[in-house]
Amino acid sequence: MFKVLAAIVVVLALVIGAVGQFTDCQSQGKSIALANGKTTPMKCHWTGQAALGTALPLLGLGSVTAFTKRKESRRIIAVFGTLLGAFVILLPTQLIGVCSNPDMLCNSVMKPTLILSGALVIGISLVGLVISERKPEQIA
């Protein structure tokens, strides 16, 4: 069961990391033009970068979950997973945000994908926590 949960977390981590790279306005050739003629990325770009930064520990967490047998370790992993999932949700909604225009790809794809993936990571972590609490400890 834990191997299945771990695999789902790994897939979600890959989605979280990838969606920010391919759906931000920068990747669509859009950026803010400054008065001096230079351009600067919009905030959705930084959300994408932060999502990538969150996806890496999540990927590690998913991989570790598959091989961890100790109840205490699983508990800590589940708590970390819940926190990372919440962080993924907060990135586009509260912490950094995405562009306001609902037609932009960052608003219509990146934001909902991050929210949905974050919610799934939280759900899976909580399921893992409940199962690890119920099952007797297995030491390899």
């Binding site: 609902p102 037609d103 608003n107 219509s108 794809v109 934001k111 929210i115 949905l116 919610a119």
Partner: peptide, 13 residues
């Protein structure tokens, strides 16, 4: 519910 609610703009487009 989450998918349809979150991706509604994408669905419309």
């Amino acid at each position: 519910v989450m998918t349809v609610g979150l991706f509604r703009n994408l669905i419309v487009r």
